[in-house]
């Protein structure tokens, strides 16, 4: 397996926060290759003149009124929290600094 394929798999795994078992990199590299081949086939189609399609349904403008609706009670929301601290979710200290990535 080529080095750049391995790196690609490792990079995607890192971005998706996946920890790969030994041997998985090789197996996934094979799957990746088949997926990319399939897309390469699509790329050969002439789609000039066709409007880009972002979804399978043709509807646009699905909007709702700006009216409040009850949400989850905080107890229900926090029931599955890994940790609760004074009504907050408690998580490991993760100072990225740029918390407002917007």
């Amino acid at each position: 397996m080529a080095q750049d394929e391995r790196e690609q798999v490792e990079r995607v795994a890192r971005l998706a926060r996946l920890e790969l078992e030994p041997g998985e990199v090789e197996r996934l590299a094979g799957s990746f290759e088949r997926i990319l081949e399939a897309f390469a086939g699509l790329r050969e189609l002439d789609v000039g003149g066709l409007a880009p399609m972002t979804g399978p349904c043709e509807r646009t403008d699905v909007l709702r009124a700006d009216e409040p609706r009850p949400g989850l009670p905080p107890d229900e929301l926090l029931r599955r929290a890994p940790e609760r601290v004074d009504g907050f979710f408690g998580v490991p200290k993760t100072v990225r600094g740029a918390e407002d990535d917007g």
Binding site: V85, G87, F88, F89, P92, K93
Partner: peptide, 12 residues
């Protein structure tokens, strides 16, 4: 995310 209240990061 609140980072300055104790040992954990708190999320609201």
């Amino acid at each position: 995310a609140v980072h300055d209240r104790g040992a954990r990061t708190l999320v609201d």
